[in-house]
Every structure is written in structure tokens, then in C-alpha cells.
Write a protein that binds this DNA or RNA. Structure first.
Ligand SMILES: [Mn+2]
Ligand SMILES: [Mn+2]
Ligand SMILES: [Zn+2]
Ligand SMILES: [Zn+2]
Lengths: 139, 139
DNA sequence: TCACTTTTGACAATGATTATCACTGAGAAT
DNA sequence: ATTCTCAGTGATAATCATTGTCAAAAGTGA
């Protein structure tokens, strides 16, 4: 076959750098708008649309994790376990999250699905709660 | 203690009846707007806002299941397993879904959470794919 | 430096959901 | 059956996160 349209290697702009930088600042899940606010407060003048675009791009390459809250808002955070399939135990108050793995579940899901003739499987497993810190603070 | 504010027993309006009726028609997950369309096609003149309100109310009492898609849209369907905590194996094409239970997972989630000091836990487990029928139809 | 693209950002547009608010009818009481 | 009252309804406006537009700005390789 002919070249499968090689991925256009993203350019390193100052906006992208600023975004990656602020992402590294915390291990909390935040919305695109929240990250944008942080950037502005840090003196950066990155546009909101750019923040949305960058976070989405980063999410696709697996450099950041994205989750959808029950209200439909998408949250992002830079993730340590790059490229590895995993899930999260997240605090609904502060957004802090731990990476977790559930190999038994993955197997179970795959088996159940194939038993029923399903194909192209996908799944979502998000566990939330209020972390020890936030609980102590009365939340 | 004094009366814990008894729930005001919902009234049986023709709109509510129509909605429950159309919900019973299929076992597929549909959006509020999709259900509204179905109702209109069936000759009912229920308002869109009423469909939203009713579905939400029914979801709170557990009479219907609600899930949030990855695009943030909320889907509903009348559920057989009333009041029982469970999850779904859903077809992304036609919306059909089976109820599934994963007791081991529930236990595991609770344990992991308490180990890390989390409280007020909650979780989401949604498994999707393309069902046998839809696969056969080339989807 | 130059030409070629990608990326940006201000702002408009989308689209699902929610809020309004005057009006209607379910059902309890008489 | 008639009243009374407020939950329920619906047409429509308002929200609000996200996406689209497009001219201007800035990477990058030659
Ligand atoms: Mn992660
Ligand atoms: Mn169900
Ligand atoms: Zn917390
Ligand atoms: Zn299907």
C-alpha cells in the first residue's frame, strides 16, 4: 500500500508548551475551561479554543486522560501511566485521582461480550468518592 | 423524628402515561429527544420539556435507567431490574442493552476505596460494542 | 531568508438541557 | 358533581460547554 498518511508531527508552539507545563503542575482532573483559567492566572494569554484543541489532541495520543462527568463535562489531567489502559479512583471534590487497574474486569468484560456476539467492545469504568483530605475538611 | 417530607406521589397525567407507554415499546436506550420524536410520530403532542422532566423523574425513582454517552448525551430506557443496582452491555448502533451484574467488581471497588480513605463512593461501569444483529447488517 | 503549513484566537454558531411562567387538569375534599 | 389547589404542562427563551470560522501569526524544512 502507499504511505498511510504519516501523522503530521505536532509543532511545539509556546501555547502548547504552556499547556503541557500547567498540566504538569497538578495531578487533578480539571475541565478545559478550568485549565484555561489557570493559564490566564499564570500570565499566559492562550486562547480558550486552543486549550480545547490541545487537550483533545493530547487525549487522543494518550498523553492526557479524559473523562466525562455525569453532567457531561469533560475533564483532563496529565497521566503518568502513558499509553497503558487503566481507570481512575477520583475525588469528586478536588479532582485528585489515582490510576488503578482491574485486569480481572477486563477479562470478564471481554468474555461476556463475545458470549453474546458483541464486537468492537469498549468500556468505561470510573470510580469516584470524596478523598480523605476533602472528607477531613468537611466536604 | 418528624415526617421526613413524604414524596408528593406523582400524578398520572396523559403525558406521563404516554411516555411510560412508549418506553415499554422497546428495550433500547434512547435520548430524551429521540423518545420525544417517537411520541410525536405516535400522534401524541407531549412537549419536549415534559419528556425531559419525566425521564429525569423516572430515572431518580429507578423506574428507568439513565446513562451518559461519551459525547455527553443522556440516554434512557425502561429497565426490567427495577431498583436493583446493575450495569449494561449496550450496542452503540441500535441502543439495545442487556442488564449485567458484576458482584466481584462491586466488592473490589468498595475495598480499594476504603483502603485509600475515600468515602461516599460511586461508580460507573458501562460496556458497549456492536451487537450481533448490527454486525450482521454491516455496521 | 522563503515558502509552505500548522496553529492560533476572537467571536459566532451549535445543540443538548434547563429555566420561565401563564395556563391546565388530577385528584382530594366537600 | 362542584370546587379548590397546586403539581404538571408546553411554547419559548436562556444556558453553557463545546465546536466552527477564517484571517493573521508562527513553526519548520529547504
Ligand atoms: Mn490515568
Ligand atoms: Mn437496566
Ligand atoms: Zn479530594
Ligand atoms: Zn445493535
Amino acid at each position: 500500500m502507499t504511505d498511510a498518511k504519516a501523522s503530521p508531527a505536532p509543532r511545539m508552539t509556546k501555547q502548547r508548551a504552556a499547556i503541557l507545563d500547567v498540566l504538569d503542575g497538578t495531578d487533578e482532573f480539571r475541565s478545559a475551561q478550568a485549565w484555561h483559567d489557570l493559564l490566564r492566572h499564570d500570565g499566559s494569554s492562550v486562547g480558550l479554543a486552543t486549550v480545547y484543541r490541545s487537550l483533545q489532541a493530547l487525549a487522543e495520543t494518550g498523553e492526557v486522560d479524559a473523562i466525562v462527568t455525569s453532567s457531561g463535562e469533560t475533564l483532563y489531567r496529565r497521566c503518568g501511566a502513558v499509553n497503558e489502559h487503566h481507570h481512575h479512583l477520583r475525588c469528586r471534590v478536588c479532582g485528585t485521582a489515582d490510576d488503578i487497574e482491574v485486569p480481572e474486569f477486563e477479562e470478564w468484560a471481554a468474555r461476556i461480550a463475545s458470549e453474546r456476539g458483541f464486537a468492537r467492545m469498549d468500556h468505561t469504568v470510573e470510580i469516584t468518592g470524596v478523598c480523605a483530605d476533602c472528607t477531613a475538611k468537611g466536604h
